[in-house]
Design a protein around this nucleic acid. Structure first.
Lengths: 216, 216
DNA sequence: TGTACATCAGTGAACGCGCGTTCACTGATGTAC
DNA sequence: TGTACATCAGTGAACGCGCGTTCACTGATGTAC
C-alpha cells in the first residue's frame, strides 16, 4: 500500500518533530526574545539532539518566520469573517473587540511573539510580520471600500483608514496581553481594556463618518 | 580649591565613561536587541576593560533603563511645547508631525531602541518605557482637557483619547524609521508617511469634534 | 604649600560554562524487483 | 510476500569561542592637617 493517501510514517514523524520545535520555541519566547534564544535551548526543551534542529530549519530566524505564519493565520481568518459581516458599525466594533479578546486569551504566546518581534532584532522576522500586516491592511481596505460610508473616498484615504484600524487591533491585543500577565484574574482591568478599545474604534468610526464634512 | 562648583576631575571622568557606555550600547542596539547584546561587546566598543562596566551599572538591564530616560526625555519636552501652543487643530497636527519627523531624523537610534524594547525581552526596560509613555499620556490628557472641544467629556474619555494620540505618535515615529532604513534618501516615501500621519491625526480630531453628536 | 593617608575608577588574569556548527554514524522507513 | 539496496531523521562526540563574573591590583585624584 504505497498510496499517497498516507503521508508515510517517516514524513509524519518529521512533521511532529518540527511542530515540537515550534511549540517549544514559542514557549521559551514568552520569557525572552528570538535573538537571545539558543538553538540548544529549543532542542533541549523538545528532547532531541541539537543537530536535529538542522533537519528542519537553517537557523532560528527561519524558525521565527515559520512562527509568524502560524501566529497570524488564525487571527487573520477570524477577523476576515467579522469584516464580511453585514452589520451596523456598533455591532462590528463589538464583534471585532470580542474576537481580539478571545484570540489573546487562547493564543497569548503567539500575540506576545508578534508584538515582541515586530520591531525585534531579526530582520527576516520583522519583514515577515510587516508583510503579513500589510496583506491584512489590504484586506481591511477592500472590506471598508465596499461599505456605503466610503463613497467619495480615495483609495489612498481608505488605505490610511485601514492601517489605522490594523494598528489599533495590534495595540489592543498588546494591551490585553499586558493586563493578562500583570495579574492573574483581574477581570476588572481586562474589561476596562475592552471598553477603551471599543471607544477608540468608535471614535475613529465617528471621524470616518464626518470626514468629508470636515475636509471638503 | 575644594569648592563644589567644579564636580572634580575624577567624577567628571566617571561621567564621561558612563556616557561612552550608553552611546556605544545605543549604537550596537541598532543591529540587535538588548537581551542579545553582550556586556563585553559594549566595553570593547568603548575601549575599557569588561570589569569597568560594573562601576556604572549592575547589568545591561540597568543600562537599558538609563537609555529609556535618555531616549524619551527630549521628545517629551518637545511635544509638551507643541501641546502648550494656542493654535487651531490643523496647525497643531502639522506641528506635531513635524516634531516627530525631526526627532526621528535626529535621534533614529533612540527611536529604534524604544520601538524595539517596548515589547522586548527585558522586564525592567519594558516597565520603564511603559511608565514613561504613561506619564506622557497623562500630560497629553491634561492638555486636551483644557481645550474648548473637551467640554462635556468625562476624564475617562479624555484619557482614552490621549492614549489614542500617544500610540499614534509612537506608530508614526516607527513608520518614519522603517522608511529611513529601507532606502537611503527616498524622500518620496518619507513625505508619504508624513501625509498619512497627518490625515490619521486629522481623522481622529474629526471624530473627537463629533463624538457627542454620535454618542448621546 | 607640603606631606601622609584614603578613596575608588579602571585593570587584567582567571574561572567555568553553554554556545553554534562539523562530521561520520545508525537504524528505521521506503522502494525496486 | 520476500529480499536487497537507498534514503534520511535523528545521534553523539568533538571543536573552538566568547560569554559574565570574581578578585586582588594600581595609580591618579581627593582630603586632612
Amino acid at each position: 500500500m504505497s498510496h499517497s493517501e498516507t503521508v508515510g510514517v517517516r514524513q509524519a514523524q518529521k512533521q511532529r518533530t518540527r511542530q515540537a520545535l515550534l511549540d517549544a520555541a514559542l514557549g521559551l519566547l514568552e520569557e525572552q526574545s528570538l535573538s537571545s534564544m539558543g538553538l540548544r535551548e529549543v532542542t533541549r526543551a523538545v528532547g532531541v539532539a541539537p543537530t536535529a534542529f538542522y533537519r528542519h530549519f537553517r537557523d532560528l530566524g527561519e524558525l521565527g518566520v515559520a512562527l509568524v505564519q502560524e501566529s497570524l493565520a488564525s487571527l487573520h481568518a477570524t477577523v476576515r469573517a467579522v469584516l464580511a459581516e453585514q452589520a451596523g458599525a456598533e455591532e462590528r466594533i463589538d464583534h471585532t473587540v470580542a474576537v481580539v479578546e478571545r484570540y489573546v486569551r487562547e493564543h497569548p504566546a503567539h500575540v506576545r511573539f508578534i508584538a515582541r518581534e515586530r520591531h525585534g532584532g531579526v530582520r527576516a522576522v520583522r519583514q515577515a510580520i510587516a508583510g503579513e500586516l500589510d496583506r491584512f491592511a489590504t484586506e481591511v481596505a477592500a472590506a471598508l471600500k465596499v461599505q456605503p460610508v466610503s463613497v467619495g473616498w480615495s483609495d489612498e484615504d481608505v488605505r490610511m483608514l485601514a492601517e489605522l484600524y490594523v494598528d489599533r487591533l495590534v495595540m489592543t491585543a498588546s494591551a490585553f496581553l499586558d493586563v493578562s500577565d500583570g495579574e492573574g484574574e483581574d477581570s476588572e482591568r481586562w474589561r476596562a481594556v475592552a471598553r477603551t478599545a471599543r471607544r477608540q474604534l468608535r471614535l475613529i468610526s465617528v471621524g470616518r463618518r464626518h470626514w468629508h464634512d470636515a475636509v471638503s
